[in-house]
Design a protein around this nucleic acid. Structure first.
Length: 423
RNA sequence: GGAGAUAUGGCUGAGUGGUCGAUAGCGGCGGUCUUGAAAACCGUUAAGCCGAAAGGCUUCGGGGGUUCGAAUCCCUCUGUCUCCGCCA
């Protein structure tokens, strides 16, 4: 959620930056500003009325002490009238605040000024690419065939027990999953992230604070009896840890890593995008979250990118980094880089990580702030990234490292798997 | 799941209807003293909103109510603790 005072004071700049995201509803912005003007005027009136009431209450008390009951009663009657006015004003104030809030959350985050213009994934800018794209031998297979050939995962069994998109991992497939999780967590710890194991269900307030609610409700599985939601990413609990808190400047940056199952309904997905491990309803992910000082937060973003790139390098997977254009980045992000690995048999780039700086957009909703050296309280910047999402990594590992003899496990992972080939 | 207790500022802990945003201690910050530090002493130390400022308003777990006036009384929800039950 944007900071309304910032919009008020930088209207032109906000409009210009939102245009990068192809958001051109200037009327909405002006409507919010107009409502805010009214809000402030009503607020003033309301406060003055309340001040009068408070003052009278004090006078009434004094009058009683002096034994002047008649005068006190007179003033009481007057106060009762003023209370009606205060109530009316306060109701209007609350109504305005609510309306402003619901309209404000419809405005996306302002992209950083250097975000590429564009309308779709085709306009994303490839800023980095490395690793050799393997030339597969005759008879090489897509990962879903490899999964069943080596008995690594069972989709039919998942269908029976739960439904589509909930596979069982088995044997070396299950061990590979576990190895990757441990590998990612260890790498993150070594990079200074505090390991955390978060709850995988969260309450409504948390889902709201990180922006899953109100408009992405259909993407989440819900537990209506208890008012809970299954998390679509560990970002939700890992960021909500810091909801409604004020940290000290010297504590920044606060770096957290957590592994979790992630649950996504993925309503509307179909076809080759959901084939095999490409898109699941339940998957595993290690997420890194950083609470940063606004000064230097883009250096922190670079550090996150380097961390993710290092993981892919150690897994010996060819990858590229895309600077997402305005039209393809998320509602809440100010800058996003996507990491994609090359899926050699599918001949597809698969997104395995999305690293973003949200600047103050999330922090404003979270009420996550820090006290600077002068004692001023400011919103922090929040950043997060996947490091990494498992299924597509598994897909790429299987496809890119397949040989006629079996699937070769990258060196860095072998101490975690305990085997160097799946055959 | 049943019964009882409890919820106050960074922490501990007073406060049962009238200048209470709140006594006190600890912690933090600033200062005096000191070559320096410690001790001692003095001062300072919650957040949000409106306002150029002065200042005003709101907030004592959340919500609602009684009253001219609520941290204080009533209702309700939630969390925590203790006992019982169940249980990985």
């Amino acid at each position: 959620m944007l900071v309304i005072s910032y919009i008020r004071e930088h209207r032109e700049e906000v409009i210009e930056r939102l245009a990068i995201k192809n958001f051109t509803n200037v009327a909405l912005i002006d409507e919010i500003l107009k409502l805010d003007d009214e809000r402030r005027a009503i607020k003033k009136q309301c406060d003055e009325t309340l001040a009068g009431l408070n003052n009278n209450a004090r006078v009434i008390g004094d009058l009683y002490k002096q034994g002047k009951a008649a005068e006190a009663n007179e003033l009481k009657a007057k106060n009762n009238e003023m209370k009606d006015l205060a109530k009316t004003l306060n109701d209007r104030l609350e109504e305005l605040q609510q309306v402003i809030q619901t309209k404000l959350v419809e405005i996306p985050n302002t992209p950083r000024i250097d975000v590429p213009k564009g309308t779709s994934a085709a306009d994303n800018v490839n800023v980095h690419q490395e690793g050799e794209m393997p030339q597969l031998y005759e008879g090489a297979k897509p990962h879903w065939e490899l999964l069943s050939q080596y008995n690594l995962a069972d989709f039919d069994l998942g269908n029976k027990v739960t439904g589509a998109g909930f596979p069982f991992y088995k044997g070396k497939g299950a061990k590979l999953q576990r190895a990757l999780i441990n590998f990612f967590l260890d790498e993150a710890s070594a990079a200074g992230y505090n390991e955390t194991q978060p709850p995988v269900v969260v309450n409504e307030a948390s889902a709201y604070a990180t922006g899953q609610l109100p408009d992405k409700e259909a993407q989440m599985y819900a537990v209506p009896l208890d008012g809970f939601y299954l998390i679509p990413t560990a970002e939700v609990p890992l960021t909500n840890m810091f909801r409604d808190t004020i940290v000290k400047e010297e504590q920044l940056p606060i770096k957290t890593v957590g592994y979790s199952n992630c649950f996504r309904r993925e309503a509307g997905s179909y076809g080759k995008n959901v084939r095999g491990l490409n898109r699941l309803h339940q998957f595993d992910k290690v997420e890194i979250v950083e609470i940063a000082n606004p000064v230097g937060s883009y250096d922190r973003l670079e550090a996150m990118k380097n961390h993710v790139a290092g993981l892919l390098r150690k897994l010996e997977l060819p990858f590229r980094i895309l600077h997402l254009c305005g039209g393809d980045m998320s509602f809440t992000s100010a800058t996003t880089y996507d990491f994609e690995v090359w899926s050699a048999a599918q001949q597809l780039w698969l997104e395995v990580s999305s690293v973003s700086n949200f600047e103050t957009f999330q922090a404003n909703r979270l009420k996550l702030r820090f006290k600077d050296k002068n004692g001023n309280i400011q919103l922090v910047h929040t950043l997060n990234g996947s490091a990494l999402a498992l299924p597509r990594i598994v897909a790429a590992l299987l496809e890119d490292h397949q040989t006629p003899e079996g699937i070769l496990i990258p060196k860095a992972l072998q101490k975690y798997t305990g085997f160097d080939i799946i055959s």
